[in-house]
Amino acid sequence: MNAETWRGCGAPRQIAVLTVWCLRTLVSDRRVVVFSVLQPLIMLVLFTQVFGAVANPANFPPGVSYVDYLLPAVLVTTGIGPAVAAGASLVREMDRGALTRFRAMPLGLHWVLLARSLSDMSRVGVQSVVLLASGALLFGFTAHGGVLGSVAALLVALLVIWTLMWIFIAFAAWLRSPEIMQSIGFVLVFPLMFASSAFVPVANLPGWLQVVATVNPMTYAVNAARHLSMGEPVGTSVLLAITTSVGLLAVAGFLAARGFRRPLTR
């Protein structure tokens, strides 16, 4: 046992190597790359055409089109899919392949989860940039808040999506059942997306749905992104979105790490 016996490395290096590992796995499947780019485009086409057809211009200030109103919301809602998928893939891969090897290596298992979420988030980041660019170039999206406003909206959206992703990772780490994850996905995705301020002003929703939309964290995220992107006074929306996000992120991250560390029985 001479020269090169390696016993492990520090956290920053673990995170870096693991993230590269996850990213390489992600881009190794070209179909994933192609669909990742297509998905936001499809959402944008559908939502602008379907809801745009019924959207009442009277609801918007002069000079603001439906796409200006919609795009910041889609920035947030496109992330719901990847967030759910992060949980589903963790459940699927937890008891096989490289994830089982990491358990017997001198690593912080929480860094494995962090690396996975970072690599998934880089995909969301690319999707968001595609969304903003194609919105501006193809759909006549105008960022009334300027480039800075759009970047700020993007950052808030990414933070909220990251939080949502960790919530699903925590579910996955504790429940460890593909079926239950799928049910949770179905039950949560549509209300999160539609019972919010994403597509229609909350004031235009039926009364009971207004209540749901008001407690939906997505509403705060969408409001914040929208205010920033449209250059409106942000009020408390940004602060509210960031603080609830960070709070939930801390709880979900802690629970996810705890859950994931539990042994794979047998």
Partner: peptide
Amino acid sequence: VLVAKLLGA
């Protein structure tokens, strides 16, 4: 290679 790097190589 990735496992070697994770171990500190």
